[in-house]
Amino acid sequence: MLHDLVRSDLGIGLGLRSVHYGHILARRPEVDWFEILSENYMHTGGRPLHVLDQVAAHYPVVMHGVSMNIGSVDPLDRAYLRDLKALQQRCGARWISDHICWTGVQGTNLHDLLPLPYTKAALRHLIARVRQVQDLLEQPLVLENPSTYLEFTQVDMDEPTFLQELTAATGCGLLLDVNNVFVCASNHGFDAADYLRRVPWEHVVYFHLAGHTVYPTHRLDTHDQPVCREVWALYALAWQLSGGRSTLLEWDGNVPSFARTHQEARKALRHRARRPTRAAADVTVAP
């Protein structure tokens, strides 16, 4: 079943955002597919769900969440997972994705994608949880590499190895966020191109692209500006290494017009046709 997801190139999609609802419903723009933020359509019976019904009737939809808390030591929230599955049934989402992270502990949700230590113990914990979720959802879960701003000192492996072990043990899919690879490479000082060469590509279902903010000390994954040159170069490399996957642009802050957002997403067509350059590896410099 994961194979079907990996092979189903939906084209170039956009994150569905409320500021674009009016344009999308009125104009029905030619967009290959939309990704929804799952939680925006859960625990509500109002306009967002009404809009989603109409969008899902005309476009392929994918669900992307931020509150599965898959890496937490707290028990899995089964009510949340049931709601997630119900939403998928309602909108016909092709797959459900979330992040390799934890978002809270002791019942509290910090609403942040907090990093896991890449230890054998954390890996065992995550593998067991992914298997549980996949059993409950009755499908492969798709998990995204997060942007992180700290690294734990005591680790047993790096992130690509963690991804290899996780996917091999669970059969889960990966959402490879190219911007996150670049942000982490910059924040933690590793070679992003080398990272990409070690990704278990047979598990990668789709790509995320986004913009980020550069601070004097670090880069922050803000999704509030265009995709930078280095991320496009990495995308070209990722495209070549993967053989091509569904691609989605996220734009969450200072969201421009629908036309401008779509235009930015469609730049992917140009970049995927390019030969990867040295710029793809040139990301270990200070921000």
Binding site: D112, L114, Y149, F152, N187, G189, T217, H218, A286
Partner: peptide, 26 residues
């Protein structure tokens, strides 16, 4: 740096502060 690694730009507490500051801001 026994729990969180520093880098050449940020101390462990600087790195933790990114998350601390973002929490309330969000």
């Amino acid at each position: 740096g026994a729990v969180v690694r520093p880098n050449d730009r940020m101390s462990p507490t600087d790195r933790l502060q990114v998350y601390n500051g973002a929490y309330l801001a969000r």
